[in-house]
Amino acid sequence: MNDYPQSCLRVGQIAPDFTATAVVGQQFQQIQLSRYRKYVVLFFYPLDFTFVCPTEVIAFSDRYAEFQALDTEILGISVDSEFAHLAWIQTERKMGGVGDINYPLISDLKKEISMAYNVLDPTLGAALRGLFIIDRSGILQYATINNLSFGRSVDETLRVLQAIQHVQAHPQEVCPIDWQPGDKTIRSVS
């Protein structure tokens, strides 16, 4: 039995709000999730200065403009301190850092946010690879949690985000498997 309460987090519910310190650019700022009035891709990763984590952080940063074009903010979060995040950002990519990135890295040193999103692995004391898409109204629309050993897909995150936005704009439609923007949808029965 673990020492942490199990979350009842479900898609369709309001995403757990939080206020935390983040590194934005190379400055410390307070981030409050509920202040975002756009879509949010919130992704948890275990730790800075590891193996798979920088590949994800860098890949999301490199594709940031595509998310911005979809009125979406990306927020990365781990249980590291804001000081560790800053050091990681200030370390060149060829030296194991992530260099400058285009979105905030949030510190969850107390592990409260990881617990609220039910991604904290109590044995490791770090977050699993959770990814959540939250809509403009603060409703959790998508959730996925990976084990530590493998990374996520930026392409799939964009595809799911576009599907969410499509069905919200067209409430009588649903998107079938592997749907891509421009593909046929299915008319839902209401």
Rank of each mutant, 00 (worst) to 15 (best):
I31S: 01
L161K: 04
L140A: 07
A69H: 09
A22L: 06
D71K: 07
Q90A: 11
A65Y: 12
Q90T: 12
M95H: 05
Q90F: 01
G125P: 04
P122I: 11
S137N: 12
S81V: 13
Y45G: 07
Q141A: 03
I133N: 06
V189R: 14
F83N: 11
T144C: 11
L70H: 14
S149Y: 04
Y117P: 01
T55E: 06
T55I: 07
P122R: 08
G130M: 06
Y4G: 07
R93M: 05
H170A: 02
G12V: 08
S107N: 06
Q168S: 05
S34T: 02
P122K: 11
L105S: 00
V98T: 13
I58S: 15
H166Y: 09
V154Y: 12
I177Q: 05
D100I: 12
P54I: 03
D100E: 15
Q168C: 01
S153Q: 07
E82T: 02
I14K: 14
H85T: 10
Q162V: 08
D178H: 14
P171K: 10
E66A: 07
K110N: 15
D100L: 07
S149M: 11
M115C: 11
D155C: 03
I101M: 08
R10N: 12
P104M: 13
L33Q: 08
A20H: 03
S153F: 04
A84V: 15
R136L: 01
D121C: 13
D135L: 00
V174G: 12
F67Q: 10
P104E: 09
P54E: 09
S137W: 00
V189E: 09
A163F: 00
I186G: 02
A127M: 05
Q141P: 11
Q30P: 00
V160T: 08
F49A: 06
V23R: 02
Y39N: 03
V174Q: 05
N102F: 06
P5K: 09
Q172H: 13
T21K: 10
L158N: 13
D17R: 06
E56K: 13
F60C: 10
G25L: 11
A20D: 07
L9Y: 04
Q68R: 15
V23I: 15
R63W: 13
A127Q: 04
I106N: 00
L124N: 12
G130L: 04
G125Q: 05
I74R: 03
W88C: 02
V189H: 13
A169Y: 08
G130W: 03
A20E: 03
I186V: 15
P46E: 14
I106A: 04
S188R: 14
R159T: 01
I164E: 00
E112W: 03
I133S: 10
L9D: 05
P104T: 08
A163H: 02
D62V: 02
D108I: 12
F51W: 09
D121M: 05
L70M: 04
E56A: 11
L75M: 06
R35A: 00
S153I: 05
A143G: 06
E156M: 09
D135Y: 00
V79D: 03
G151P: 06
A126M: 10
V79T: 15
K38Q: 03
R136T: 01
K111M: 13
Q172S: 11
R187W: 02
D183R: 10
Q90K: 14
E66G: 12
K110P: 00
N146Y: 10
